[in-house]
């Protein structure tokens, strides 16, 4: 794929294909649009949050092919062909995703702004299956800041949901 630079203003759009929350989407994106801005501004999927726009807070965490990434530091065009899951895509027809339900049960948030990123990150952590002790969970959830300071409840929610998720396998 190659797309050339116009003389001024915005660069010309490219066509990309995403599997977004289980749905095939053909989209026109400008190369300078990040995955985060595509989700929030163009697609109205504002569940994915912008806290810093520089990979320093984790509020924008989404799952790409089952792995957690910061959507603010990826160009949408670079995700051409990828499978993207946002917080809007986690709940099934039968209700909340087990991680979402655990967050509600444990009051694992206050303002709710970092919450979608925390939840996607926790689902990504479950997929990685690399954290086994409480301290490992803490370390591997340290890419998601929570200014309200709900960390202990977030940890409790994740500990609660992990066995269910490990039982299920899969990538959200």
């Amino acid at each position: 794929m190659s797309q050339n630079l116009p003389a001024a203003g915005a660069p010309a759009a490219c066509r990309i294909l995403l599997e977004l929350n289980g749905e095939r989407r053909e989209l026109e994106v400008q190369p300078w649009t990040t995955l985060l801005d595509l989700l929030r501004d163009q697609l109205g999927l504002s569940g994915t949050k912008k806290g810093c726009d520089h990979g320093q807070c984790g509020a924008c965490t989404v799952l790409v092919d089952g792995r957690r990434i910061n959507s603010c530091l990826s160009l949408a065009v670079m995700q051409d062909g990828a499978k993207v899951t946002t917080v809007e895509g986690l709940a099934g027809a039968d209700g909340l995703h087990p991680m979402q339900a655990a967050f509600v049960r444990h009051d694992a948030f206050q303002c709710g702004y970092c919450t979608p990123g925390q939840i996607c990150s926790a689902v990504g952590l479950a997929n990685e299956n690399r954290a086994h002790t409480r301290d490992e969970l803490r370390e591997q959830m340290s890419g998601n800041l929570c200014r309200c300071g709900a960390y202990p409840n977030i940890l409790a929610a994740i500990e609660d949901a992990l066995p269910t998720l490990r039982g299920q396998g899969g990538d959200a």
């Binding site: 990979g55 984790g58 792995r67 957690r68 990434i69 910061n70 530091l73 952590l125 990685e128 998601n144």
Partner: peptide, 9 residues
């Protein structure tokens, strides 16, 4: 270094 998300990218 960094965070799990950044290390994935």
């Amino acid at each position: 270094g960094a965070s799990p998300q950044l290390r994935n990218m």
